[in-house]
Simulated assay, not measured.
Amino acid sequence: MENMLEVKNLSISFGGLRAVSEFDMNIGKGQLYGLIGPNGAGKTTIFNLLTGVYKPDEGIVKLDGQDITGKKTIDINKAGIARTFQNIRLFSQMSVLDNVKVGLHNHYHYNTLEGILRLPRYRKVEKEMNERAMELLKVFDLEKDAEYLASNLPYGQQRKLEIARALATDPKLLLLDEPAAGMNPNETKELMETISFVREHFNMTILLIEHDMKLVSGICEELTVLNFGKVLAQGPTAEVLNDPQVITAYLGE
């Protein structure tokens, strides 16, 4: 299997404290991969390194063979990494449709003058963006809510909208940061189905940070477990979750 993401020897320190140390991870194209670990293990720091929020002190990150180490967030997004956040970051006072259209601006362009004067090119591009955004909303059964304010959607639907907006950037790799946070069991079950569907429908490679072990064991093929910024275990999900070191790290025994 070809790798979509290759991470080698990734390290970063903050004020002398080593937050992530010599982190390695390979994710194959089309894989649904999990990154887990106790609170404070460094998982979100790794997402921030992968997306250009932080620049690593050492190490290499390659996306589909392209070296993206230390690039700016916008350039990494254009290269093909999109993410969601543990705390939903929608444009709450914009419509559901417009939230998705924000994600489309990587691929649809008109200049300021064309926009102000609403010239034919502006109208053509806006029509194409509306059509593409509605296609994405249909995938998540949100098309009927297109004109609603994003803040008026139920929590589970806001999560779906955030994923739809990330997919609008046409990524190669989708990073999901604790998507089940704050969800009840029914919403979590629906989310599992949504993530699996996204992977199949878009032939998407997905990396997931999650604390809900039922969700992780239900959909992730392989896992990396992080503890104090270092890899504790790595491999097929069932094997990793049965590793005594992993059980100890989680239960604190």
Rank of each mutant, 00 (worst) to 15 (best):
T205H: 12
K172I: 06
E210S: 04
N186V: 15
A180I: 14
E193T: 08
L208D: 03
I206Y: 05
L191N: 01
D212N: 15
K189L: 03
S217L: 00
L175T: 06
L176F: 08
H211S: 12
I195E: 02
K214G: 14
H201T: 15
P179N: 02
N184G: 15
P179D: 02
L215V: 03
S196K: 15
L176S: 07
G182Q: 12
T194R: 12
R199T: 01
M213S: 13
K172L: 11
F202V: 08
K172Q: 10
D177Y: 11
V198R: 05
T205P: 08
D177H: 12
E178G: 12
L173T: 01
L173W: 00
T194N: 09
P179S: 00
R199A: 02
A180C: 13
V216I: 03
K172V: 02
L207V: 15
N203H: 15
I206Q: 03
K172S: 06
L174H: 04
S196A: 15
S196P: 06
A180W: 11
N186L: 13
V198C: 09
G182E: 11
V216F: 00
D177I: 05
L191W: 05
L207Y: 05
I209L: 13
I206C: 06
D212G: 00
P171H: 03
L173C: 00
L176N: 09
L173Q: 00
L175C: 05
E193A: 11
A181K: 09
L215S: 01
K214I: 00
T194H: 08
L174R: 07
V216E: 00
K189R: 13
P171W: 02
L174Y: 06
H201F: 13
G182W: 14
N184I: 15
F202S: 04
E200I: 06
L174S: 01
H201L: 05
